[in-house]
Simulated assay, not measured.
Amino acid sequence: MTGRIPSPFYIQNSSENKLVGDILFPFAYDELMCHKAGEGSQPFVHIWRHDKAIVLGLRDRRLPNIDWAMEWLRMHGYAVGVRNSGGAAVSLDPGVVNVSIVMPNPSGRLEFKEDFELMYALIRESFAKLGLDAAKGEVAGSYCPGEYDISVGGRKLCGISQRRQTKAFIVNAFINVEGHAYRRGELVRNFYEVATGGNMELDVPKVEPETMATLAELGGPGVTVRTFVQALVGTLESWGGTVGRHPDKPSMQELERMVATLRSRYDRSGGSEEE
């Protein structure tokens, strides 16, 4: 399975129209599609962007001043939510492309590294189409650090997290394509200063903004959100994917209920990363 998504699968590219408002809607969408995949629906890849948001990890929700820090972000115009997957705080804006792979796992196997390798293979092949050589491995000083940080020239462009259900799973990635990576790093660092009450000895990422970069910065002026998404979709099509909305897509009522569930379960009291 490593490096490929079982065909046939659907590629839903929503990146042309960036999302606004509640940041939990795309996570609710993927959560519902994951339930459906566990019941036999075809695999699904979701590509999307958001206008202005901060997505927190479950570990962030447990920081001593987190309620004030979340309110501080909202006062500065950011949509704020806690995702139901691993990792830590991530800054989203129109220059960041988000990718979710939703796949069934009927045997219930816990192949964490295989699942991360799948996303890494997708990003690596897509970067190669733009003339960039992607490496994996934690980048010290980056935000949302992890073993599967994806970097070019030692600077992080992409982070990966995972959400598992009983019979299916989701692998998420954010890719800094355009915009100001340094400013995103400063924002996340400032968030942690507020959330910890200035006690940076707590178990939080020690963010050094200069460790982050964008594809446009490292790949030259020809690299944009559009050209990256074209490369990404091209890779997925070569793997057997079909562009279009999944026939089992959830209704708005289902989405609204799931958003409320995610907020009550994770925004207020943390929770489990698996079901």
Rank of each mutant, 00 (worst) to 15 (best):
F27I: 10
F27A: 02
F27M: 11
F27R: 02
A28T: 05
A28N: 05
A28Y: 13
A28K: 08
A28G: 01
A28I: 03
Y29N: 09
Y29L: 15
Y29P: 00
D30V: 02
D30W: 04
D30S: 15
D30G: 02
E31M: 07
E31P: 00
L32W: 08
M33A: 06
M33H: 08
C34Q: 12
C34L: 05
C34F: 08
H35L: 10
K36M: 06
K36S: 12
K36G: 03
A37L: 03
A37T: 02
A37Y: 11
A37D: 07
G38W: 08
G38R: 01
G38Q: 08
G38K: 02
E39G: 12
G40F: 09
G40I: 03
G40W: 09
S41L: 10
S41C: 15
S41A: 15
S41K: 04
S41F: 09
S41M: 07
Q42C: 09
P43Y: 12
P43C: 07
P43W: 14
F44Q: 07
F44R: 08
F44M: 09
V45P: 03
H46S: 14
I47N: 11
I47L: 15
I47C: 03
I47D: 10
I47E: 11
W48K: 06
W48C: 01
R49D: 12
R49L: 09
R49I: 04
R49Y: 13
R49C: 11
R49H: 06
R49Q: 14
H50F: 12
H50D: 13
H50I: 07
H50Q: 14
H50P: 03
D51T: 10
K52S: 09
K52W: 13
K52L: 15
A53C: 10
A53R: 00
A53G: 09
A53T: 01
I54M: 15
I54G: 05
I54T: 05
I54S: 03
V55F: 05
V55Q: 07
V55W: 03
V55L: 11
L56W: 04
G57T: 00
L58M: 12
L58T: 07
L58F: 04
L58H: 02
L58D: 04
L58P: 01
R59F: 13
R59A: 15
R59H: 06
R59S: 11
D60E: 03
D60T: 01
R61S: 11
R61H: 05
R61K: 14
R61L: 06
R61T: 01
R61W: 07
R62N: 12
R62S: 13
R62K: 15
R62I: 11
R62M: 14
R62Y: 08
L63G: 04
L63H: 10
P64C: 07
P64Q: 12
P64K: 06
N65V: 00
N65H: 13
I66H: 02
I66A: 05
I66C: 02
I66G: 00
I66D: 01
D67L: 13
D67E: 15
D67T: 13
